[in-house]
Amino acid sequence: MLSDKHLPAFYGLGALILVVLPWILTAADSSYLISTATRLVIFAIGAVSLDLLIGYTGLVSFGHAAFFGVGAYVVGILAFHNFEETTFLGFDGTLTGLVVLPLAILISAVFALIIGALALRTKSVYFIMITLSFGQMLFFLFVSLEAYGGDDGMMMFEGRNVLPILDLNDRITFYYFCLAIFTAFFVFCHRLVRSKFGRVLAAIRQNEDRMTSIGIRPYTAKLLIFVIAGAGAGLAGALMANHTEFVSPGLTHWTKSGDLMIVVILGGIGTLIGPVMGAFVFLLLEEFLPIIFHELGMDLLKEHWRVVFGPILILIVLFAKTGLYGLIFRREG
C-alpha cells in the first residue's frame, strides 16, 4: 500500500506509460488499440470533470453526459455546415480546430450555466433527478434535430478538425493531441482543488449550511464549479466527436451519464487520479471482458458482459467505496 506521498511518482509513472504507449502498442503489433487508448484519455477528461462535482463538491450530477453531447454536437454541426456549405444561424460551418474547440468549450459552459442556475436551486435527491431530466431533455432535443440526422446522428464526412502543423487525422498525432489536452486539464484540476476556491468547495461538501454564516453563498460557488465541469465535459465531447468522426444523441443518453459516474466511483471519488484509473479499468473491461469470455467458451456472456459488470459495480459500491485509489493508496491523516 502506497501513501499520498507517492502520488507524484505515481503521476510520473502514469505519464510515462501514456507517452510511450503508442510505441508499445505498435511494437506489440496491436496498434488498433491506440484508438482505445485515445478513448481512454478522452473518457478520463470527462470523468475527472464529473469528479469535480461528485467527489470534491458533493454534487451528485446525473446528467453530465449532456455537456459531453453539447461539445460533440458543436463539432458535428459545424462540420456538417462546412460540408454542405450552408450556414447555422448565419454562421458558416468550419473545421478549423482553433475555432471549433474553444467554441465547443464555451457553448458547453453556457449550457452548464443555464442548467446549473436552475438545477442548483434544488438539493440532494431533487438535484439528482433534475440533472437526470436535463440530460434527457437534451437527448430528446438532439433526437428531434432531423437536419442533423435525428436519431441516427451524423458523420463528419471531411474527417477531423484541422489544426496548423498537426494532422489530427493521423491516429498517433491525434492520440498525442488528446493526451496533451488531458494533461493540461488534469494539471488545471490539480491546481483547482488545492486552490482557495477548492477549499471552499470542500467546505460546502462537508457543511453547506455553515457557509452563509461565514459570508459565503454556496449557490454561486456551486454554479462556478458546475460550469467548469460542464466545460470540461464539453471539451471531452468535442474530442470524442473528432475521434469517432460521428455524432449522435446516444452520446447524451442517461446511461452514458451513469457510465461516467461508474468510472468515477470505480477509480475513487474525491481524487483526480482515481477517475483516470477508473476510465482505464472500465475500457479495459469493455475491451477484454468479451474476449476473455470468448476464450473461456462462455460466448453467451461475450456479448452481454455487462451482466457481470452490474454485480461488480454493486459490490464495489457496497464494499469498496474508496475504489481503486483506496486499494493503492492509504490516505494520510
Binding site: V60, I128, M261, H304, V307, F309, G310, V317, L318
Partner: peptide, 28 residues
C-alpha cells in the same frame, strides 16, 4: 437493505448496477 444508511450516490450507483444486470440478464 445495505443501502438504507448510505448516501444517495451509493444508492444511484448500486441500483444502476441492478439495471445493467437485469437488462443484460433479460436479453440473455
Amino acid at each position: 437493505r445495505p443501502l438504507y444508511h448510505r448516501d444517495h450516490l451509493d444508492q444511484v450507483l448500486a441500483t444502476f448496477g441492478l439495471i445493467l444486470f437485469f437488462n443484460e440478464g433479460v436479453s440473455i
